[in-house]
Amino acid sequence: MSTANTYTEQELVQGLQNHDQQIFGYLYDHYSPALYGVVLKVLNDETAASDVLQEVFLKIWRSMDKYDTEKGRLFTWMLNIARNTAIDALRSKAHKLDQKIQELSNDVYAHTSQLTVHPSVDHLGLAKVIEKLNKEQRTIIDLAYYKGCTQEEIARVLDIPLGTVKTRMRNAIIQLRNILKQI
């Protein structure tokens, strides 16, 4: 997060496990844009995304005692809850594969139109990532992460052999890493 934390991760976890609403408010203020970004990109529908975001934070609040610091960072854990909840909602809407792809290409425009409205977005970083990550690399990451596509579905969409999906994904992430180093 760009803003300086006034709580350490340990204090946050402890506060949340003690059901401290003030700390939960702080958590919401700091992490909701990132989690909402994920949910919105999955569902591509602001109303549905708002409902799912609410559900995500309630899940975080309720299952805080299940969170294990050993297994990973708090943000990773919250992201997983957000992604899984949103993808479940997406599946219940029974989106077809081509619809998911359509949404992926649409939402880039949706975001660029909103960039001016939401100062929390890292414009420059996003622009650089979109510019430097080629279309196939971005598609392979987005289909997997935001649309919960299987390896088979990705192989079909990108018209590549099933056996190469994982290596393509590796190349995409490596490229992403190189871009991130430059930002």
Partner: peptide
């Protein structure tokens, strides 16, 4: 890497949600 990527798409949710 993935988390940084995801954060580029951060958007403030509607205020009513909180």
């Amino acid at each position: 890497d993935m988390e940084r990527y995801v954060q580029f798409f951060s958007i403030a949710p509607p205020e009513s949600v909180k």
